[in-house]
Design a binder for these strands. Structure first.
Lengths: 218, 218
DNA sequence: ACAAATATTTAGATTTGCCTAAAAATTATT
DNA sequence: AATAATTTTTAGGCAAATCTAAATATTTGT
């Protein structure tokens, strides 16, 4: 696969939300910042190559083979993201662009060894699951901390309330996007939570918990 | 710079042996497994871009700008080689192909952090020096162990005698290509050497020393 | 020094991935 | 259901990087 073909495969995969959904020409064009006519050209080619199913005017979906390719690309992308954050101290929000390049490197051995070096991580720095070599992986969902059962852990990926006071609270308590948070206990009485973050426990109110989004794998 | 342009720059650099020597069209074509006419096209383009000096029928050399690009490519290539060998347990002879891909990744931060992770290595797994960020580096030479002064260390890169008995000797004494060897002492009387390899000392005869090539940086 | 051999360049085509503009199909609206 | 709006495709072109074949320079050998 060429670099460009791989990018299209990834776009189709992501627009189809990982399901085997048909994706429209326009959607792909937008995602890839290119023109619909270019997309038509490419999806015809991918179809001839046995990577995608294409029916004129009806959109494209990936074949089983195409999905396999997409999953190895996703796997590589996310493993490199973990590498960049864990080994090279990149911050969670600056890894995407570089991983976008690294995911195209062709060497199965490299990916396997990288996986090993990183300790076979299950999720990337954004909390998204890393497919196994065989292409299996759990889905991730984004939930308010409030709605997550005791014992679960996830990665902090966003806030509902983005007012200054709330952000100041997070800062003061050293909670940042990308942090791994585990739900230690929940207080029935006031709906407050005991959470574990960066090796220490922290008590947060129901209100706080209701404004923090975590990404968890089910 | 495109991928292809970078490959040409590297080829010109290596064929010119790092000096600013003019390189022939045919030599580049051979090195890059392409046709001379394709080379002519590309070196014209590089010339227009200020990367190379080209005079019809007289060959090309790199401009100062071109040399700078070549050196950052060499730096990236060799740092990745160290990464593959030291962090991912690749063997010294299987890293080239992968490093050839990795060297094109565009991220200054990535290279800097990689350099740091690896402990600012001076040479790659083949004993070739790694240019600094500023493009400075010592030259490496390949010498018989015999001709290397006490106190120096280098990397074993080849043998003069490749007969079975000699190779068997190396195997028995656990000396392999890619190993770092330091010259601890030399015996005036019989020309034998005490060398240090993989954390233990080893006594080798003049004859052995005269058949082992090390790469050292001066 | 001149012919033969070799090296290099030019000219013209090809492939890949992209573009614009126009045509055709689909979907939405009244 | 017919027309309008939108989406998608087709047709024709362009730039990058390559190729083959032919033309032109340079170098080598005698």
């Amino acid at each position: 696969m060429t670099l460009s073909e791989e990018d299209y495969i990834k776009a189709i995969y992501h627009l189809g939300k990982g399901e085997n959904t048909a994706v429209s020409t326009n959607a792909i064009a937008e995602q890839m910042a290119t023109k619909p006519s270019s997309v038509t050209d490419m999806i015809k080619k991918l179809s001839e190559k046995g990577v995608a199913n294409y029916r004129k005017y009806k959109g494209v979906s990936l074949t089983e083979y195409g999905q396999k390719i997409a999953l190895t690309l996703v796997r590589k992308h996310r493993l490199w993201e973990v590498f960049l954050v864990n080994e090279l101290d990149f911050s969670w929000d600056e890894v995407h662009e570089v991983a976008e390049q690294l995911e195209h490197i062709k060497s199965e051995k490299l990916v396997d060894r990288l996986d090993k070096l990183l300790g076979y991580p299950q999720v990337d720095p954004h909390g998204d699951p890393i497919p196994s070599k065989e292409g299996e992986f759990k889905k991730a969902v984004k939930k308010l901390l409030n709605d997550i059962p005791i014992g679960t852990s996830g990665i902090c990926v966003g806030v509902k309330d983005s007012s200054a006071p709330f952000l100041k609270f997070l800062d003061k308590n050293n909670i940042a996007l990308g942090d791994t948070i585990s739900i230690v206990d929940k207080e029935e009485f006031d709906g407050s939570f005991m959470i574990r973050i960066k090796d220490h426990d922290l008590h947060i109110s129901h209100q706080i918990a209701n404004n923090l989004y975590l990404k968890i794998t089910e």
